[in-house]
Design a protein around this nucleic acid. Sequence first.
RNA 1: GCCGAAGUGGCGGAAUUGGUAGACGCGCAUGACUCAAAAUCAUGUACCUUCACGGGUGUGUGGGUUCGAUUCCCACCUUCGGUACCA
Length: 897
Amino acid sequence: MDHLAETIYTMEYNFTAIEQKWQQFWEKNKTFKTSDDTSRKKYYILDMFPYPSGAGLHVGHPEGYTATDIVSRYKRMKGFNVLHPMGWDAFGLPAEQYAIQTGTHPAVTTQKNCDNFRRQIKSLGLSYDWDREINTTDPRYFKWTQWIFIQLYNTWFDEQQQKGRPISELKVPDNYKSQGFDNKNAYIDAKRLAYYDNAQVWWCENCKIVCANEEVLTDGTHEKCGYQVVKKNLKQWMLRIPHYAERLLDGLEGLDWPEGVKDMQKNWIGRSTGAEVHFPLAGSDKSIEVYTTRPDTLFGATYMVLAPEHELVNEITTPEHRQTVSEYTRAASLKSELDRTELAKEKTGVFTGSYAINPLTNQQIPVWVADYVLTGYGTGAIMAVPAHDTRDFDFAKTFGLPVVCILDPEQNTDNESRQKILEGNMCWPEDGQYINSANPDKGIDINGLNKENGIQKIVEWLEQQQIGKAKINYKLRDWLFSRQRYWGEPFPVIHWEDGEITMLNENDLPLELPELDKYEPGANGESPLANADEWLIVTDKNGRKGRRETNTMPQWAGSCWYYLRYIDPANNEAPFNKAKENYWMPVDLYIGGAEHAVLHLLYSRFWHKVLYDLGIVSTDEPFQKLYNQGMILAFAYETSTGAKVATDMVEEKEGKFYHIENGEEVQQIVAKMSKSLKNVVNPDDVVERYGADSLRLYEMFMGPLDATKPWADQGVKGVFGFLGRVYRFFANLDNINGHNKEDAEVLKLLHQTIIKVESDIENLKFNTAISALMVFTNLAIKKGKVCKETAELFTQILSPFAPHLGEELWNLYGHTGSITYEPWPIANPEFLKEDTFEYPVSFNGKMRFKLELPIDMPVNEIEQEVLNNPRSEKWMEQKTVRKIIVVPKKIINVVVS
RNA sequence: GCCGAAGUGGCGGAAUUGGUAGACGCGCAUGACUCAAAAUCAUGUACCUUCACGGGUGUGUGGGUUCGAUUCCCACCUUCGGUACCA
């Protein structure tokens, strides 16, 4: 043993040999295999699983993975049964596009990329239980994605109970039943959480392909070809996520998530309270229904606006306006939503020729059509109150419509503005006091009230008169759940020739993808599956013909429930075993990028709540604690004109940076890693040059986990140097003294470090934990020798951060097994005792000198000590001591004047 | 526009129930080792001033509260992320 240690020590810190040795050891011994021993306390630590791209791992990936790995290793040492899995979110566009270009089956590309990702991840020494690896493209996995889709289809949301329930429990009202089978089915279909309907999608005429939202740039062009995209109506699967809006909002309350993410979800759900109001049409028995958050401003409604797509537009347009209105609505339909918002500054619209009646004033007000009113929100129609809504104000000014002020801003603004507002020449969307807001004939008067009371009183009146009612609205829309793609989960759906839609039986799952020769899209925007004739056409036992759904599910589908599959990844009878689910859920810690703050996390929560309502999972929320890792950026350079300069075109001289060709001075900036700036860092290179432990340590040492921070190669060298120091000192058994009593200073710092590292890991503050490990190492090296027990304790608290080095040292100290399950050290308070405290002594708040005093000295004695201290004289000369503040074990401040 | 996060040495960053600003690391400087370099080791390193002791200034800007403010309050500036005609 001694001889072995000697040989290894005489070598330098050979990280490559050490890391390979231990990675093989872990693999061979299945060190990180997780049992489902429900008698132990569990801890479920989840990473957002990656899309295995052809480019391989980016340095951003190991950041979150290392953080969760440190927590996993720490929790194991703390005695927890830790579930820490990894898998692949492997459906997606790039593999399909590659297939179109080369004919390579996406599964082949995907397999290759997964293998590469797995190799890279394993090279980082991350402690995943690889027996639980999952892949969303594996039929054994997506069988259950399809199964969950069927559950969604067979569920409706009971408003009263605020709960999803099996469709079989839905009572169809008698009047629907009496109208026959079709109506009954239509009623049921209208309640299902998954439904099939027309929806607008982006369509690229050039590529003859449907584009996802993310593929459409802000100027309305397709990111791949630069062609303008248009909207197209296609039959799509949709999910009624808005039914769960309130539940998704409520559920956020109990979660340990960053406030910012909760806010983003709240904004996305976009709950608003207001009222629905009916405006009768003049000379007609029809009425227009509007939604408003400001029913209090009804007295100021001087016109109405319908969205161009509103169903009443055609009906109410008078013959003399027909031409202009139809031209306008046609133009609007051709415009993309982006165009519409693009033109936000200039409002457009046309008059329909019809008038509605303001139910409060009984005045006739014109009805316009304008695209600043959106069809998807509220009722697609508004009452316009130009005096108190900026958008309506802009529109009214453009078209010369009347502006009637009904809310006096009073002292809320300056006098000049107030005059303009009262005259209708300025908009006032804030609070104030109502004026011109009474109609004795109708029995309503809110003059003199403020906004809050005004809203309440008007809503009460509307409900009494039965012309409106309080209403809650959400921005959240139905989720478009199908893509015209090949490389996604096929829907377990058959469309029969008689119009019926059925789901496959559970025993017919999974429905796998057919083999194709070509991956080009089908005709009319259908997915490539439309070309798979043999797969596509089915016949039932009665000879009825049907066609399979040709759309596939979006990439979100597989990631909506993957955390559940890790619990029981090989189960072929169910998505997971219930008892295991009950044991492992919820996820205790979930770390990933903030780019998933809304969609992925909202969609998962939605599915999870449905599964919860159906009794399939045991928790209402899936992810108890969420944390976002920050982005890793890189340095780049910029000339005085703002032109970016690639890193290989810059040289450093005396702390300044110059262009190597023209010598111009350039500024160092922080930018995203990109090929063009030549500042992309490849984890493989870092592992090769400095080792996995250095990469891990550096990524954690860079700064707070959630901060955006730039990569600096010098910084990697820094932590590499630290690990080298650790190795040279702690692996040299000459420095490790077997029997001597440990130095008190070392002992005290060691136990302080144990406490510090423990609490820092608990709070995900890895940068300061590493700093504490460095401080201790510096002291140990300074002392020259430490006891074996000290070295072992240090090795244990180091090992979650630098696991390969941890194992190596542990082994050198004579242990044969892995350090993985060694119990986390417990700090001994004996060694932490302090007899004295070094007080900083301030005069008028400025620290002047330090004074060491016994730790339990009474305050009055401390005061005497300070006043009698010769060093105090200088600061009290010619002055009177007004007060002495003594905060025990903190500070002393003498106030003089 | 709205919502959120953040501004601290040459650089990454540390310190907040208000209590020694700059831990730790990089970089830099000096020294040791070396023929030399690298690596390693030691010492120093916020800025101004002073030979030095010391003194002054300092956490984006301007105010305020306090014995004491990086930390709390008000106003503002800048950067980043999200969102955008949601009535």
